[in-house]
């Protein structure tokens, strides 16, 4: 039984599952990374994901056009981000609390809209697995790495882009400096408000896409509270990844692979109580976080509202 765990079917299965499972985490956590690097903690990710998931599902279902659905998720995410930015930047609200508020809003609102506009659980035809010439035809590896839908590839493409923007562009420099010392950045003529608006709205957009990657990509269905805590894991992954896109990628993959691994443990009938198996990814996350917490440093201005000195 244990030897079966190391068969090629299982290892490839874990890889393919892990790659898929990491998708929504990547979108949401990369968005959150930008926000936190600029000093804004957004705990509303889950709510933004739910509304994005619903918007994408509803528009795709009504129009039959998945790209319009994706666009709807982007718009809804942007609007949610805009509202969050107004509350945190202009009104200087306590970020943790207002984020929870936005989460609850998204949870309730997506359910309400679903009940009123759709009524019952339905499936739709989501983005199909993309066939990439040559790559998809490689035996074994093609199946594992190149048999996914476009939103999965998008998530992985986002990681180097995010790394580049954060580390190699002026915008990235502004974001990082505002997250460390907004007073100093402000005195150099950088608009703290404008940059934070940008990062929060971008975070909202990416959370919306994260939701869409579930409702019109991986699951092709919408159900009340379908994200079921995914958005909060995404926020934890930002800490896990030490506020770096590559770290986030590592964290998302590790968490997802362990999750895929525990599913295989159960499928193979390894005699381990299911409750324990399900806990595995969470326990591992806690352990890694505890180990990492003493070594990494969060952006200094994280979760602190910025008020310009008169």
């Amino acid at each position: 039984m244990i030897t079966k765990l190391f068969s090629s079917t299982v290892i490839l299965g874990i890889l393919a599952s892990g790659i898929r499972l990491a998708t929504p985490y990547l979108y949401a956590a990369i968005g959150e990374t930008f926000g936190q690097r600029s000093g804004v903690l957004n705990l509303g990710v889950e709510g933004q994901m739910l509304l994005g998931a619903f918007a994408a599902f509803y528009v795709s279902w009504r129009t039959g056009n998945l790209w319009l659905g994706l666009l709807a998720a982007i718009i809804v995410g942007a609007v949610m981000g805009l509202a969050m930015a107004f509350v945190t930047v202009n009104l200087h609200a306590e970020q943790g609390i207002s984020g929870i508020g936005f989460y609850l809003f998204g949870l309730g609102m997506s359910d309400l809209l679903f009940q009123k506009l759709v009524g019952t659980v339905k499936t739709i035809q989501g983005f199909p697995a993309l066939h990439i010439p040559v790559l998809s035809d490689i035996p074994v590896l093609g199946e594992v790495f190149f048999s996914h839908n476009i939103l999965v590839y998008g998530a992985y493409a986002l990681v180097p882009i995010a790394w580049f923007v954060l580390n190699k562009t002026t915008l990235g420099l502004k974001i990082r400096s505002i997250g460390e010392n907004p007073q100093a950045a402000d005195s150099l003529g950088i608009s703290v408000a404008a940059v934070r608006y940008y990062t929060i709205i971008q975070g909202g957009i990416l959370s919306g896409i994260a939701g869409a990657s579930l409702s019109i990509g991986l699951l092709n269905v919408f159900q009340q509270n379908m994200t079921s805590g995914l958005g909060f894991i995404a926020v934890a992954l930002v800490y896990f990844g030490a506020w770096r896109p590559l770290g986030v990628l590592g964290g998302a993959l590790l968490f997802s692979m362990v999750n895929a691994f525990q599913l295989w443990l159960q499928v193979l009938g390894v005699p381990i109580p299911s409750d324990l198996a399900v806990m595995l990814p969470y326990v591992l996350t806690i352990l890694v976080l505890v180990a990492a917490a003493s070594k990494v440093r969060a952006p200094s201005a994280l979760a602190k509202p910025f008020e310009r000195e008169a």
């Binding site: 929504p24 379908m226 079921s228 159960q266 499928v267 299911s274």
Partner: peptide, 11 residues
Amino acid sequence: VTWTGSFSDVS
């Protein structure tokens, strides 16, 4: 048999 540990976790 797999148990997801949740009544709501669609994914």
